[in-house]
């Protein structure tokens, strides 16, 4: 605990010593760029050390639609988050509070509270830097000033998997201040940036405690189905037989499975990971679910499929042999189509 507090104090001293860093840089000899591993370790350590609150702007291109969402984001170590949505009007007033174990969402237009599992990882994992360096082409592209803070620009190359990203990491704190993702043509499809940020030694815990508004309707959407850690167990639990290859795209390994339920809907879920990003495969008997006519028509594994672009996540849906399949991931569309083809080819005969 003492080392954690020491780390926080050291970070804050660094912050205090770096006001208007751009001004200090003028005329000063250029400092050598840091090592990618060191930058990654600072970024991966940050969730365990840094509290912050700021205004974040997220712009996504979803197919033919672009949307910009603005919100107040507050983070408290180790894994507590509060989001207050400001615009556009369709999300204005929405509140999301995550205390690291449970998340709550208040939807004012419906006077509704939805609770569910936490979606925040608050543990500092600097050891994962090596995994990232092994799996991705990581480069330091330079230094840039973002909202008055000196950042190191990290470039992640899209290889066989993964996506083209640039991340502007606050050199002093390790907090990503800006993230960009580009498609195969080099066009930006996702941008997330802070237009203002303030760091704190200790944000008030009350900010991260949810108080249910009087009279609000409450609904719980928790993850259903016990997870299984092996393919054989998932295959044994599911009817009809599933397509669960042990490996996708040569690097995404099967990690866990589950049978998920929501009302009449149920699906076998298989999660794959390259230890950095995640691909998820869903399989539902067609007798239980009409085929969702969403997204644009594409061909996956020689079959008619639908492609839904959420800007950051992408979805491929197709139907074959009495099963509805869906593959999701934050990889380029062409790579996701390839993963869908591999799932389709592994279908039991």
């Amino acid at each position: 605990m003492r080392s954690l507090a020491g780390g926080v104090v050291a970070m804050l001293l660094l912050l205090a010593a770096r006001p208007g860093s751009a001004g200090l840089r003028t005329g000063a000899p250029a400092r050598p760029l840091p090592d990618p591993a060191a930058v990654l370790r600072t970024m991966l350590r940050a969730p365990a050390l840094i509290d912050y609150e700021g205004t974040k702007v997220i712009s996504t291109v979803r197919g033919r639609t672009a949307e910009t969402v603005t919100m107040l984001e507050a983070y408290k170590r180790l894994g507590k988050l509060r989001l207050e949505f400001l615009s556009p009007e369709s999300v204005s007033g929405r509140l999301v509070v995550d205390d690291g174990a449970t998340s709550w969402q208040y939807e004012p237009s419906m006077h509704l509270v939805v609770s569910g599992p936490s979606f925040i990882s608050g543990s500092g994992r600097p050891d994962r830097a090596d995994e990232i360096l092994r799996g991705y082409g990581v480069r330091i592209l330079g230094r840039e000033e973002v909202i008055g803070r000196e950042t190191v620009v990290l470039g992640l190359a899209a290889g066989r998997a993964g996506s083209h990203r640039r991340v502007w990491i606050d050199e002093a704190t390790g907090v990503p201040l800006r993230t960009e993702e580009r498609d195969a043509r080099g066009e930006i499809v996702f941008v997330s940036y802070f237009s203002r940020i303030g760091y704190s030694l200790n944000l008030p815990p009350a900010l991260f405690q949810f108080r249910q508004p009087a009279g609000a309707r409450a609904v719980g959407f928790h993850v259903t189905g016990d997870p299984v850690a092996s393919r054989s167990e998932l295959l044994a639990r599911a009817r009809p037989p599933l397509s669960v290859p042990p490996l996708l795209l040569g690097r995404y390994h099967f990690r866990e499975g589950r049978i998920a339920h929501h009302g009449a809907f149920s699906a076998a879920v298989a999660t794959y990971s390259d230890w950095i990003s995640v691909l998820t495969v869903f399989q539902t008997p067609s007798s239980r679910m009409a085929f969702p006519e969403v997204g644009d028509p594409v061909t996956a594994g020689g079959r008619s499929a639908r492609f839904l672009d959420l800007g950051y996540f992408r979805v491929i849906l197709w139907q074959h042999g009495g099963t509805n399949y869906a593959v999701l991931g934050n990889v380029p569309g062409t790579v996701l189509l390839q993963a869908a083809g591999e799932v389709s080819a592994a279908r039991p005969r």
Partner: peptide, 25 residues
């Protein structure tokens, strides 16, 4: 699908927590 995938993406160190919150909500 989107909700479950977003919840599973917590392990991605580059996933933006605010964007996950938007997708899930």
């Amino acid at each position: 699908y989107i909700r479950e995938h977003a919840l599973l993406s917590v392990t991605d160190p580059f996933a933006d927590p605010a964007y996950l919150g938007l997708l899930i909500s």
